[in-house]
Design a protein around this nucleic acid. Structure first.
Lengths: 132, 132
DNA sequence: CGGAATCCTGCCTGATACTG
DNA sequence: CAGTATCAGGCAGGATTCCG
């Protein structure tokens, strides 16, 4: 007979799963890179430092909440730096660290892959959809 | 005065935003790669064909719904093939296409990057958290 | 075994208003 | 300008059940 409710089993499984994640660097990376805003911010900073408002305009569709949140986590992870200039009005600049730049290189490769192969993907998609 | 309700404006903005996305291959890629299960499936297939149940066990934490859904979209996009062997019980095998393999190469680089730099990220995270 | 269909919950996200 | 705080909703995604 079960000694745990479904909810308890779920919690136990989740804790176990989290522990496994914590021990596995590649899984942690995936969690981070699986955030589309992370990728877009990295791409947005590829050509140098940008101000908050510039990023906000460049990355169309991002809410200020998600932009701030994404910038914070990236800063926390040491992928970019946040510089506040005490002027009126205040200016905040974001810039990739060397670590962030090394990751951005890989992102750029992904972007290149996409642009090179997107037509193949679209063709495959069409032929898949054409089937009854 | 506004001639649209908030909901209408939202819908219009969204349509416009989607149209922009549709015209930009790199954005479409990001939408696809921002799915952590996509990455994990590609990694799971890197060493050759795998059966559904094998993938399900390898990719710990994935629900059957998300696994099936992910495999379907990847098949639709021409990144992997789905082969059904009419036996009892039925056997279904998934395998990367050449296109899928080329993307998997890049994913492997990301995985390597993660394993090489995760300690730096964790260090940065600790020092960030240590600040009052 | 390998799914499809259904229900249901939580969190992600966006909108809005306020601060320094 | 560059945020923080709060609230509401929509949908991603998990659990469950049933089918070929």
């Amino acid at each position: 007979m079960p000694t745990m409710t479904a909810a308890q089993r779920r919690a136990a499984d989740k804790a176990e799963y989290d522990a496994f994640l914590a021990a596995c660097p590649s899984r942690q990376l995936l969690d981070r890179l699986s955030d589309k805003w992370v990728t877009l911010v990295l791409v947005g900073l590829e050509e140098g430092p940008r101000r908050y408002s510039e990023l906000s305009r460049t990355i169309a569709g991002v809410s200020q909440k998600m932009l701030t949140q994404t910038l914070r986590t990236l800063e926390r992870d040491g992928l970019l730096t946040r510089t506040v200039t005490a002027s009126v009005p205040v200016t905040v600049t974001y810039e990739l660290t060397p670590l962030g730049r090394s990751l951005q290189q890989l992102m750029a490769q992904l972007k290149d892959w996409a642009e090179a192969h997107m037509d193949q993907v679209l063709t495959a998609r069409d032929s898949y959809d054409a089937q009854p």
